[in-house]
Amino acid sequence: MCLSISTRTSTMALITFSGYPSSGKTRRANQLKEHLDRRLADPPYNDLRQTVAILSDDSLNVDRSSYKGTVPVLFPSLSNDVVDSRSEKLARATLFAAIQRQISPNTILIVDALNYIKGFRYQLYCAAREFKLRVCTVYVVATPELCKRWNIERLDDRGYSPETLDNLIARYEEPSSMVRWDSPLFTVPWSESDVPIELIWKAITEGNVKPPNAGTQAVPKAPSDALHTLEQVSTSLVRAIMAEQGASGVLGGHVALSLSETLKLQVTLPARSLTLSELQRMRRQFVTVQKKAITLGTVEKGMVDWSEEGVAQRFVDYLEENLRG
């Protein structure tokens, strides 16, 4: 009974903050963490070791200058301050790697960062689906004028240069509740005193957990001896069919084959004499198809069985399908 309660109440979620630089995201993230910590301290969560963690550029020591990036054509006056965008990509990669490391079964992870590119928010959404997390996005809204003023008034020496701030505001891609990777979306304007904790709590404890899609799942690798098994088993099967046909003189029907002491199977052959060249052609075609599976790791919707029995049965099925009539 205790296990079922823990399974039902245990929560893990990814909460993505987004907004202009210096718009107040960190203040909102801390507000949210305080609310969540209090709720997790009460039953039925207090005995499940649930935690709330915040990841940010500050906690990862990512310098603000990393986000200078590429200045838009709309701002030619900033061209002297253009730097290679590789530093910006590295900053996002550092954040993403930290998110993947910190995701755990009983953690609510708050990502307090710019998250201003919709492609990066989609990447976070895919990671959340892979780990079967509930998700939501908190959009912290402030006017550019307020952000610039608050950036100047910062006392922690972590402000953005005026050029970088203008650049980031110009490039900001606003989240939308109409796209799945930003939903559910909670907008918190600067005039609000607190975050909508009730709505966010409901989203991360009762929201749907979407299954991973094919694009987010690791592709299972074929074993290192898969190609050897494929060649050996298919060759042995061709030899066994030719030997059985020559020994029995019976054309077609159900034929019992023995490839080894442990590998025995049946194949249904057409009522005619099969030539070695015909079977060899079938074998080459089969091997060509299966080599693709070795590279991709899957065939259609299922995982591939690379044991001798699995390869032999697939070759038998292939022969029966292609030798009909």
Rank of each mutant, 00 (worst) to 15 (best):
S4M: 13
S6L: 05
S6N: 09
T11H: 02
M12G: 02
I15T: 05
S18E: 01
S22N: 04
S23N: 02
G24T: 04
K25F: 04
A29K: 03
Q31W: 00
L36Y: 01
Q50D: 00
T51M: 06
A53G: 06
S56H: 05
L60S: 07
V71I: 15
P72N: 03
V73M: 06
L78S: 10
V82D: 08
R86G: 11
E88R: 12
K89L: 12
R92P: 00
R92N: 07
Q100N: 14
L109G: 05
A113N: 11
I117F: 12
A128M: 08
R129A: 08
E130R: 14
L133K: 03
C136K: 03
P144M: 07
L146M: 12
D156T: 10
D156E: 08
D157C: 09
R158I: 01
G159Y: 07
G159M: 02
G159I: 02
V179H: 10
V179S: 10
W181M: 04
P184M: 03
W190Q: 11
E192G: 01
W201Q: 09
E206D: 14
P211K: 02
P212I: 03
N213M: 07
G215D: 12
L230T: 07
V238I: 14
V238D: 02
I241E: 03
G246L: 14
G246W: 00
G252W: 03
H254N: 13
S258E: 15
K264H: 12
T268V: 11
R284G: 01
V287S: 01
T288N: 11
Q290D: 03
Q290K: 13
T295H: 09
T298M: 12
K301A: 10
W306E: 08
V311L: 02
E320K: 04
